[in-house]
Design a protein around this nucleic acid. Structure first.
Lengths: 349, 349
DNA sequence: CGAGAGTTTGAGGGCCGTCAAGGTTTGTGG
DNA sequence: CCACAAACCTTGACGGCCCTCAAACTCTCG
């Protein structure tokens, strides 16, 4: 029997909704304010959460924020309950990672349908990805026990949906664990004091985000954000540390990943230190080429490109038009297609 | 009984020298050319090698080069035998890592003294460092078995003396293992196509050099060179891999080292991408301050500074004089002393 | 269709790399 | 111990790259 948590300060709505749900065969948990709601969510692990936005003390956004911070609750489907007047604020909630919303007043059909839909989606996701997870070759170097256990761990974790531009963690946060990207794309970046952004990592499905943060200290050194709607799976810190301690094969996989990372970053360092904007731009384009399907066109904002190549957005624009005039790349809209990879590669400094 | 290998194509000198050595109680191995010399050195592991420079086919330099490539032979004391006319070439040999040389003709006293001296030095080094190695806290996170075994491994390895500017390994070399710095300083750097140098690492005693190279692929991505006369200890690849496979605690130590490394490199990336030469210079100075004894003066060439900060040597000069005029640093000769660390830290961009 | 974000193009100027020359330190040989 | 060469460091002049500011243009979305 599925457990549903309602967080709502208005007792009429709370009790009314609870009744409908109980009649439909759900087990219902009730919280009268944000704080008890969070406590209940963490202790009881409901399968879905309904939450009002406007509440005294801790409002709905606060609840969502707190729950998404904790590995145990971050994957629980979350539906906002909102009055019509609050519609404009809703976008904010959705961007923070809510899965759906219901406008009060809502009838039983609406409610049940939204809940059914969300629960089904969660299950479908889990089964869909768990299949793809078993094909994971990233860590599948062999038939070693540790790797097998890691796979099992991944398969058992809940999937978390991330919206475009949503942030997984901020620089300075305490690391919760490692995120395995299942779908979409995640970038990590650092900010200068004056707000300029440098992309430090670009992650595609089957990549692990946040290995460093976990290993090095108790704060993240970079911010992780979704480039597009994505799905990730959080492997909590304790589990990973436990695996690392018990299984050398896992440690070695991670060592390889980190060592490769260092090599890439050193190459980048060399570029930043001594190479022209043109050269850096061409390298970034080639890197994107390999990350995305080869010989395909990719869409990426000029700002992202600027953050990757460490230059001003205007300079990106100029360089790209130059490249186009020289027949190195093609452009339609903001999409870019590489036409002459060889010449890009040999770009003089 | 100590084993000594003589590599010398001239049979008079070879046999004469061998006789002296045998009378003095050494076991002597003889090779009539470079190639058999190398084979003998690798199969018999002599305690010391005497080697002529001028030989047909494989000359003395070649022998030294090949032997320094192999972990098993790289720590064996190596003495060149040279005719007077070859004196000028000798510097080359010493830079490649020879420990001493004898000018032909030499008498028995000279020979025996040089050998005694070298063998004693080797032994003294080993015992001196093995004491200091047992104090190693770098890897001594606990009383775990793996760490203990690593320490034992290190204590049992031979010490290798490295002269200033001598190269440990080149970019593109196959990694032989990890070097533990015992004394002195080692830098790693990469080169651009047009020959400019970027320092990627700076290693002091108790640091490990070359972890990446070992883990990531079968070629080194950077060159490692001694900044000053140094002593290192090579931990061969197989041993390290073996330890990594068997002991998770070792793996975790290395993971931490790598993760820290990544963090540092990302900070550097941000600096190179967006920060002014002044800012970069101040960061480099502060980094050196922490690496060397704090509040002390350090000597470093402008070229090294340029390679660390990714700028032209002339710019380094200019920036340093500016800093001095502003009272941030003091200079005597090429030594630099930081006077106002706080203001350096807060350097505007 | 208008608002707004994202992109492109232009003008101007400062930072810093390059070239060049002169000064200082270090090392070598007589 | 001195002289000389070589390496290293400093200072100057100049110019190009690329960042900033500003404005026009394009695309997307309500």
């Amino acid at each position: 029997m599925k457990k549903i948590l309602i967080i709502e300060d208005n007792s009429d709505i709370r009790e009314g909704t609870a009744e409908i749900l109980e009649l439909s065969g759900y087990q219902v948990l009730k919280a009268v304010n944000g704080k008890t709601g969070v406590d209940l969510a963490l202790s009881q692990r409901p399968d879905l959460i309904l939450c009002d936005i406007m509440m005294p003390e801790l409002d709905g956004y606060g609840v969502l924020y707190l729950l998404s911070k904790s590995p145990d609750s971050s994957a629980i489907p979350f539906i906002f309950l909102t009055a019509k007047a609050e519609r404009l604020d809703l976008r904010k909630g959705m961007e923070m990672g809510a899965d759906d919303y219901l406008t009060k007043p809502f009838d039983g059909m609406e409610l049940l349908h939204a809940i059914e839909c969300r629960l089904q989606k969660q299950e479908k996701l889990a089964s869909y990805y768990s299949r793809s997870l078993f094909n994971l070759e990233t860590l599948a170097s062999g038939h070693l026990r540790g790797t097998a256990e890691l796979k099992a761990l991944i398969a058992g974790r809940k999937i978390r949906q991330i919206k475009k531009k949503q942030v997984l963690y901020y620089e300075g946060d305490e690391p919760q664990g490692i995120y395995l990207v299942l779908e979409g794309g995640i970038k990590t970046f650092k900010l200068t004091e004056d707000g300029r952004e440098l992309m430090t990592g670009l992650y595609k499905p089957e990549d692990y985000v946040g290995i460093n943060g976990l290993l090095v200290a108790d704060v993240q050194a970079e911010t992780a954000q979704a480039l597009e709607d994505s799905a990730v799976c959080l492997l909590p810190k304790e589990m990973i540390m436990n695996l690392l301690t018990r299984y050398p094969d896992i440690s070695q996989q991670f060592l390889k990943i980190l060592a490769n990372d260092i090599r890439e970053k050193e190459d980048q360092l060399l570029q930043f230190a001594y190479q022209s904007v043109r050269k850096r731009m061409s390298q970034v384009l080639l890197r994107l080429q390999t990350q995305f399907a080869p010989a395909e066109e990719f869409n990426i904002s000029r700002d992202e490109l600027a953050a990757m190549a460490g230059m001003a957005t205007e300079t990106v624009s100029r360089t790209l038009t130059d490249f186009k005039d020289e027949g190195l790349i093609g452009r339609q809209g903001s999409g870019i297609r590489i036409l002459d990879g060889a010449r890009l590669q040999k770009m003089k400094n």
